[in-house]
Design a protein around this nucleic acid. Structure first.
Length: 715
DNA sequence: CCCAATTTTGTTTTT
DNA sequence: CAAAATTGGG
């Protein structure tokens, strides 16, 4: 046991060897959080306090779960695969598969990802003849998921206004549709598990007496439902060991509640958090910058990271001419780092939104630098893959209307919009799935085409019963005509065909728990871990990803790009202080990814949906103490700009802007408007005659004004 | 019914 | 600048 514990600092040691009761570990960035978590599991098992089967460990990403398994396997001889280590969603899926009858689900139930869910909602709106103008599918989706994440079903909701009433009705209808089709969305996995456990006392008791030790990673990201689920499983007697960092809470937009950390202390009678404050990752200057940034936030649990490492290098700052210029700068620096012996794989370029990778990728291709983009459109989300998986879904469960609609006419087989509409009408009338309606269709041209499709799926199912997973996928690609369709298509089909081949490989490399259920398990895995599966992983390549995707990772050198008001912090967060604080935590996460060297970059002009924008530099750059910075760009000095006053951009006149013809106006200028009064120009877009200015009015707030119509004059 | 061309629309982050 | 939705000629 001494082996496990050597090298831990006193705080880490205290956390690892915490007695068999609940605890909250407040673990700063780079403080050895994952190590503490895995070492504790190993220690508990090695000291005989619990068997591997008595441990429940929950993470947020599949990557984190895998890492925990790998590290644990290296520490102690134990079959980590059989342990309950996984994401909330993965574990709930496992639970529901085991208890599908109690959950009222078919054994073959499938999981809808976000896009599938949205398609299902669109279809629902159409079938109920609800205007998607008034009820945007996106809004309905948010309503449903928001409520599910709070543990609330439609039948317990009520409202006085007609609009909300309709939303509740849609929520109920959506759940009914999913139930009919045998599918569950992400939030449903959790809610359904929770309901099964809370209704079935015997079952709950079984799991409670089994999981004596429950460990949760990234606890700050749990939502209400997840916390309720944990409380249910922990009961009174089990030890809930939660590790988290309120400063790294960046998922409030999907229901995460940092407040769960305080609730945990109260609900489980924990005296106070154990703090891990020594940082082993970053050089001093980087840490100082991070601490200075996060200090601007209110209501923190509070902690101050420190390091024994020296100051290290200054933080490099570059204010580029344009997004293209910024990308070129990054390429040049990366090449220089490479010449100095840095590994590309240890260098990351981070950005706020996925769309920003475009300009970067363009420059990287020109510079002939190998790179790897994480996130974005992931393998299992590509259209050709989703088409193929839809056939696979139909083999497993033909009542999956989503899947059927997706491929019933792909490739084209004479089943057009009219036929599909007829099918939908029939299914609604008879209260059966589209598949059943298709099976029952009579005679005629349309019915003949439908019959052929039904035959195709039936034959695929029959023939696949003797085949393994990879053979099944291969068969379906051939027999459905999907492969032939992409082969016939001349351009851009090459990559798609390669992806389809890769899908066969993925199937061949998939090892199900229960071989009988290989198809069902494979489909679940595809929904739950849509990404990760990307080719050319081995190569030494520059790492590109969003800041969100970078959480939990670390790199020798980090570029935080696109540091502009409106982008980072994102403009959607401007109106709400909570949102702005979340953006700042995001910046904190970005900065603390770096071990040795940190670059902050911004651009003075950026293309956004086809138009140029001229944003100002992000307030977050100004929140980094100036003495830590080393400015690389010639044009701008990193002088602090206050963002707290009403007319913030006046005390520092911006540099003259290239190619920004704003009809005599400039960013930072004070203006008056006949109706809105006094304001400050903070952003602009367009060019030539079509120029729009973003103005912060003292009385009326933020407005976009079109210079062709707005009566604006200099103040 | 099919396909291509055109218009419209929209954009944060993700399990 | 894309993807998605819509239209119109075969």
């Amino acid at each position: 046991m001494s082996d496990l514990l050597t090298g831990l600092n006193p705080e880490q040691l205290s956390a690892v060897t915490w007695p068999a009761k609940s605890a909250l570990v407040l673990a700063g960035a780079g403080s050895g959080k994952t190590r503490v978590l895995t070492t504790r599991i190993a220690w508990l098992i090695q000291t005989g306090q619990v068997s591997p089967a008595g441990v429940l460990a929950v993470t947020f990403t599949n990557k984190a779960a895998r890492e925990m398994q790998t590290r644990l396997g290296a520490m102690i001889p134990v079959n980590v695969k059989s342990m309950w280590i996984g994401t909330f969603h993965g574990l709930c899926n496992r639970f529901l598969r085991a208890h599908y009858r109690d959950a009222g689900l078919p054994s073959t139930f499938q999981i809808l990802d976000s896009a599938d869910q949205q398609a299902a909602i669109k279809r629902l709106l159409k079938s109920l003849d609800v205007s998607d103008e008034k009820f945007p599918p996106r809004a309905v989706q948010n309503f449903i998921n928001g409520n599910k994440e709070s543990g609330v079903r439609a039948d317990t909701l009520s409202a006085h206004d007609a609009y909300t009433k309709k939303l509740i009705e849609l929520y109920a209808a959506y759940d009914a549709q999913c139930q009919r089709e045998g599918v569950v969305d992400f939030a449903e996995l959790l809610l359904r598990s929770y309901e099964v456990l809370s209704r079935n006392a015997a079952l709950a008791e079984h799991y409670k007496s089994r999981f004596r030790f429950i460990l949760v990673d990234e606890f700050q990201d749990t939502n209400r439902l997840q916390y309720a689920w944990l409380k249910l499983l922990a009961g009174r007697d089990n030890a809930l060991f939660a590790v988290g960092d309120d400063d790294q809470s960046i998922y409030a937009f999907r229901g995460a509640e940092v407040g769960n950390m305080r609730s945990l202390l109260a609900d489980f009678g924990i005296d106070g958090p154990v703090r891990l404050e020594q940082n082993y990752r970053s050089a001093g200057n980087i840490l100082t910058a991070a601490n200075a940034l996060i200090e601007k936030n209110d209501g923190r649990l509070g902690k101050n990271l420190w390091t024994e490492a020296g100051e290290g290098e200054p933080i490099r700052l570059y204010d580029a001419y344009s997004d293209g210029d910024e990308a070129e700068f990054i390429c040049d620096e990366v090449k220089a780092l490479q010449r100095d012996g840095w590994n590309l794989a240890d260098i990351a370029v981070l950005y706020r939104s996925n769309a920003q990778s475009r300009a970067l990728e363009h420059a990287l291709v020109n510079a002939k630098l190998p790179y790897r983009v994480y996130g974005g459109l992931r393998f299992f989300e590509r259209q050709e893959i989703k088409h193929a998986l839809a056939y696979l879904r139909l083999i497993a469960n033909p009542d999956d209307d989503n899947a059927l609609l997706r491929v019933i006419n792909i490739p084209a087989r004479g089943i057009g919009a009219r036929t599909v509409e007829g099918l939908q009408a029939a299914s609604r009338e008879q209260g059966v799935s589209l598949w059943q309606a298709a099976c029952a269709s009579g005679s005629g041209r349309a019915a003949a085409s439908l019959g052929k499709f039904v035959l195709l799926i039936d034959q695929l199912r029959a023939r696949s019963s003797n085949l393994n997973l990879a053979e099944t996928v291969s068969l379906l690609l051939d027999d459905s005509g999907l492969k032939a369709m992409y082969e016939a298509d001349k351009k851009e089909s090459e990559e798609r065909l390669a992806n389809l081949d890769e899908l066969i490989n993925a199937a061949a490399g998939f090892f199900p728990q229960d071989p009988e259920q290989a198809v069902v398990e494979f489909l679940s895995a595809a929904s739950l871990e849509a990404g990760e599966h990307q080719a050319e992983a081995g190569q030494d390549a520059l790492q590109l990803m969003t800041v969100h995707a970078a959480k939990g990772l670390e790199f020798d050198a980090v570029f935080v790009s696109g540091l502009e008001e409106g982008l980072f912090p994102h403009e959607n967060s401007f109106n709400d202080p909570k949102g702005l604080e979340e953006e700042r935590r995001l910046m904190y996460v970005a900065v603390t990814r770096a071990r040795k060297r940190l670059y902050l970059s911004s651009a003075q002009s950026r293309m956004l949906h086809g138009l140029s924008r001229y944003p100002i530099r992000s307030r977050f750059v100004d929140e980094v103490p100036g003495q830590l910075l080393h400015v690389l760009s010639a044009t701008v000095k990193p002088l602090p700009v206050s963002h707290n006053t009403r007319a913030p951009w006046l005390d520092q006149p911006p540099p003259s802007r290239p190619s920004a013809n704003l009809k005599g106006f400039a960013i930072g200028q004070s203006v008056t408007h006949a109706k809105f009064g006094l304001g400050v120009v903070i952003d602009a877009e367009g060019g030539g005659d079509d120029v729009r200015l973003h103005i912060n009015f003292a009385e009326h707030g933020l407005k976009w004004l079109d210079l062709r119509y707005a009566k604006l004059s200099a103040a």
